[in-house]
Amino acid sequence: MYPPKFGYVIPENIHEAMEFLESHDDSRPLAGGHSLIPMLKLRIIRPSYLVELKTLKDLQGIKKGSEYRIGALTTHYEISKSGIPLLSQTASVIADPQVRNMGTIGGSISNADPLSDYPAPLIATNAKVVVISKRGERSVPFDQFQKDMFTTDLSQGELVKEVVVPAMDGYRTDYEKLERKAGDYAIVGVAVAIKEEEGVVKDVRIGLTAVNNKAMRAKSSEEILMNNALSDDLISKAASAAVEYANPSSDIRGSAEYKKKMVKVMTERALKKVRK
């Protein structure tokens, strides 16, 4: 409940923030604070400084062109209201309204909780993460950005600047989240994006969250569906194939066995929802 002592930095601009973060090994940036502050309160992290990001303009706002460029400090609430295919639906089921008012996409993916929701659509849509540091910017595909649970491609002094999501024109999408109760983390989360032409699948992406150390694409499920019509039978086969991409652990949200079965159920439901 009571955080340990720490120093607090309010930088003038993003360069000052990055400089401070780089020169102080155990400093942490503070965005929405809805993962960082709970960890402080449990004293499971003990940073020397928190660097406040919320005033930094460079990290805010959503720009739409041929793709969506989503500033790292954009909140779950703002994303849920901005009509981004798949991502907005996913943002709308993260935690509860108060958390969505504060939590940010940059914070969520930087924290890299294996149970979080965004990784399923981000891996499914081949999203990119723009990382900024004193040395400049670099763009990293999301599947390389997430290294392991609670571990990302970020080095000390680097920040997520924005997340770039393709516009997914012509795709139908769905995110299915199985949860024990409203506001909880996912037991299983499945994101699906599909493009059909004349009743035949021309592209399909299936992203799984909460059942591995990091989000996974269910590639062989996708292959089963590619260039085929979405029959019940085929959906069922594809959903069964998704299970091989799940390596969940048994915990308070269910046994590994149960979670594997639920990957099939949720994948099936998502595919049936996106079928025309």
Binding site: D96, R180, K181, A182, G183, D184, Y185, I252
Partner: peptide, 16 residues
């Protein structure tokens, strides 16, 4: 007891 918070110990919300 390992579920000693209201994330792990499920208290219902209005949805339930």
């Amino acid at each position: 007891v390992v579920n000693l918070n209201v994330v792990d110990y499920l208290i219902p919300t209005a949805v339930e």
